[in-house]
Simulated assay, not measured.
Amino acid sequence: MRFTGSRMARAVALLAAVSMVASCGLPRSGPSKRELLAGSVEQDGDAYIVNVTPAVSRATAVQPSFGFSSAFQNAGLVGSDTLASGDMLSITVYENVKDDPLLGNTGQRVSALANVQIDGQGFIFIPYAGRIKAAGQTPEGLRQAITRQLEDQTPDPQVTVARVAGDGATVSISGQAAGNGVYPIEAPTRTLATMLAKSGGVAIDPGMAIVRVTRGRHTGKIWLTDLYEKPGLDIALRPGDKIVVEEDSRSFVALGATGGQSRVPFESETMSALEAIATVGGLSTASADPTGVFILRDEDEAIANAVLGRSDLIGDQRIIYVLDLTTPTGLFEARDFQVRDGDTLYVTEAPFVQWQKTLSAITGTTGAASNIANTANTGN
């Protein structure tokens, strides 16, 4: 009776284990390949399933387009000696008299006016000459203007004007630049590239740096690498320009049977699906299904219509791009397909992994049940 009772207890334990595994979901990293494909529009889901081909890679190879408008690019170089509000000037007047000079004391033929600042309206004040428009002129033009104002009051005045350090023709540099601060526009630093060089360059990886320039109400931005590869982007600067160096903030999310599951920042201006997989440590050799690599994306209307060969789609469309790395050209397709900001890279588990988990759960549960039964029999 004891033997029969023991066998019955084990059978009951086995049935209980199978029932428990059947009724409870096994742990896994996400939906299976079959479950994802079941969400297609063709099966009343809300996502289009698209196998990646060379044509699909070409149609979706769209990256952020940066650049400067014509207003930035058509602006000429600021004259190296053009004066602006805030500039400090050193002005010297030589008078051709000894006894009663206009500006100096008796016997003083040379009068130096140091640290004369051009005011916010662009004017300076010179004794006996009054307010003179200085902003927008060169030092030579201002010299002639001062001479004209004084020549009727003192014989043959000789005037010199020199621009010294001041707050006038300057730009600000901030963000991820190596040297943040306010820099004067001088003869060697009248363009964006030379001004960045003057500030020490950037403090981040140049391949991830974006340069934004704000001028009044207008803003433009470019990749730093493009600045040095495309001379047309090396725009002329204007007083008051704000230059900000930013780090690329684009990222994608990696989930499923990959080497790491996280939000992953881009490491270059462009990133292929193959590079994205490598960035997160590759596919998990113990669990990944190389036929089930998916890129989930909200595709804009124009690209969605092009990819699906339609013209009736309106608004953003959910598209799941499928990569099968086991096909003869699978790795090439993954190399050519571009990942974009906000994408989700998802790798499904191989079917064998779920079988393994099921068997492991059953054997583990029945083993526990057998131990309980044996303990009960021992007690009898």
Rank of each mutant, 00 (worst) to 15 (best):
L103M: 06
E269G: 14
T138W: 08
E269L: 15
R263Y: 06
D152L: 09
D316S: 10
D298H: 11
F294S: 04
A9L: 12
T363C: 03
I314R: 12
V21Y: 05
P184D: 00
M195V: 06
R215S: 04
K198S: 11
D324A: 05
K98P: 01
A187G: 06
T214L: 03
P155R: 12
G166W: 13
V21R: 06
D205G: 03
F123C: 03
N180H: 08
T160L: 11
N374W: 10
S287I: 10
F66Y: 15
G220I: 11
S65N: 08
I243Q: 05
S40W: 03
E299P: 01
V353W: 07
G330C: 03
A373R: 00
T291L: 01
L14S: 00
L323A: 06
S19D: 12
R190H: 04
T147L: 12
P231W: 14
T327L: 02
S311K: 14
R297D: 10
R58S: 10
F125R: 05
G45M: 02
A236P: 09
A257T: 00
N96S: 13
E301W: 05
A145L: 09
A11N: 00
I295T: 02
G130M: 01
G141H: 08
T225C: 04
G364V: 04
K242H: 15
